[in-house]
Design a protein around this nucleic acid. Structure first.
Length: 435
DNA sequence: AACTCTGCCAACCGCCCCTAC
DNA sequence: CGTAGGGGCGGTTGGCAGAGT
């Protein structure tokens, strides 16, 4: 495999994007969706390759992006997720709406690694540095390519087996008070996939077919006790053989091979709220069986848990049920189903929906961008302004309004059916309003 | 003021998977 | 079944900005 064909072409611009290029791309995608990325630059009038356009959109122009520094809660969540997922930035990013994998990757490499080291924790293994130093070879958190392939989600939603980042005696999560909310957030995300509201009842059937793998022993992250109430719920669901679903709506099974019944014993229930979540897959983990030994230790006044994996049978298996851009996997996709539907002779000055000016209340209800803005007490336009301070977009081409138009045109959203509003509002609020 | 150093981040590169043909 | 193209991911790098000397 070499470079993409588009990259061989000469005369393609590289490097930083100019405001004019940004505007072209933004206008095009808000009007027509990206469709086939390789055709985007041509249709949008850009001297860029499709990959570059895609990257620019995902990392910078997408209107749902949060700008600005990461909150402490976000940082804690990233650390926790990294302990679970390793360097699977896209999957970590999927749990942080508005953040990109690139952003998170950069944060990790520039800040979080340092912070962990200062706390005496090895960022690669999430184990105490002293233990790592004495423990000999330190395996990278980065999976080999085939492991990544096995781990990363596929668009058809089939369950995949995780090669968790750490080798043996995996450090579990630290129990600092600051991450309590994050833990329940992770749990909420996991639980949200179990929310019946997300799935047609008819699809709730029992499946159980995963094969255990001895290669996957001992890679089980344990969140602070008490914050994992939802995991106990997860385990109940597992015990009940509840299927999980990929974005395609196909069910896939959680590995029920192991002693899931032990979970409630170590993870007490508590009352937490569960958000509706249209994204049908989330990281899911099965739990270790009785052969696991949990050992607490303390670093820098934070309590950690270490799990000692059994050597052979009863492997703990963590499954990751999918990956991909949070945005693209959700009902909020910007992409067109079929790039052929795009107007090849796009008239950038005459959007199909005509002039879109003031945003009406129904638009507000349907538009995640606006809801997100409202939740942050921002005027919708301010979000738009945050896309790039030095870029001045034509406000007649409000991306949110265009997005709405686009989604309605594609039948992905109801037109103005107010009866469906509450549910959409609930879901969209869960996505954008409870961050 | 000029230079160097350092950190951050946007973008690129190379690889892999999936799918259509 | 093999191949080519597209999409996506993680690693790496180049350039910019700010701090320090």
């Amino acid at each position: 495999m070499g470079r993409h064909s588009c990259c061989y072409k000469q005369k393609l611009r590289k490097g930083l994007w100019s405001p004019e290029e940004d505007e072209k791309l933004l206008r095009y995608i808000t009007q027509y969706g990206h469709g086939c990325w390789s055709s985007v630059p041509k249709l949008a009038g850009l001297q860029r390759c499709g990959k570059s356009c895609r990257l620019r959109w995902i990392n910078y122009l997408r209107p749902d992006l949060k700008r600005g520094t990461f909150s402490q809660e976000e940082e804690d969540l990233i650390i926790e997720l990294h302990a679970v997922l390793g360097n699977r930035w896209s999957q970590i990013a999927a749990q942080l709406p508005g953040r990109t994998d690139n952003e998170i990757k950069n944060l990790w490499n520039s800040c979080l690694k340092k912070k962990l080291r200062q706390k005496g924790i090895d960022p690669a293994t999430h184990k105490p540095l002293s233990e790592v130093e004495h423990g000999g070879d330190d395996k990278s958190t980065t999976p080999k390519s085939h492991e990544r392939a096995a781990f990363s989600g596929s668009s058809n939603g089939l369950s995949q087996t995780q090669q968790a980042p750490n080798s043996e005696n995996t450090l579990l999560e630290h129990c600092s008070s600051s991450n309590a909310n994050n833990s329940s957030k992770i749990s909420n995300l996991m639980n949200s996939s179990l929310d019946k509201d997300c799935f047609p009842n008819g699809l709730l059937s029992s499946t159980s077919s995963c094969q255990p793998s001895d290669d996957l022993v001992g890679h089980f992250p344990l969140q602070p006790l008490g914050n994992y109430a939802s995991i106990s719920r997860l385990s109940e669901a597992i015990s009940n053989h509840s299927p999980w679903f990929g974005q395609s709506g196909k069910s896939f099974s959680i590995n029920t091979e192991f002693g899931c019944s032990t979970m409630p014993a170590i993870l007490p229930h508590s009352n937490i709220s569960f958000h509706h979540d249209p994204v049908g897959f989330r990281p899911a983990m099965t739990v270790p069986n009785d052969n696991y030994c949990f050992k607490p230790f303390t670093v820098d006044e934070s309590r950690y848990w270490e799990v000692n994996a059994p050597t052979s049978s009863g492997a703990a298996n963590a499954e990751l049920l999918g990956s991909g851009s949070y945005f693209e996997n959700s009902m909020l996709s910007w992409g067109l189903e079929n790039c052929n539907t795009m107007g090849k002779e796009a008239d950038m000055n005459n959007p199909p929906g005509g002039h879109i000016g003031d945003i009406k209340l129904p638009d507000y209800f349907h538009d995640p961008l606006l809801i997100g803005a409202a939740s942050q007490h921002q005027a919708p336009q301010s979000l738009y302004n945050e896309i790039k301070p030095d870029t001045h977009f034509d406000t007649n081409y409000s991306s949110s309004a265009m997005w709405l138009q686009n989604q309605q045109d594609q039948g992905l959203l109801p037109s103005s059916d107010t009866s469906s509003c509450p549910k959409n509002i609930q879901r969209l609020t869960a996505l954008f309003g409870h961050i």
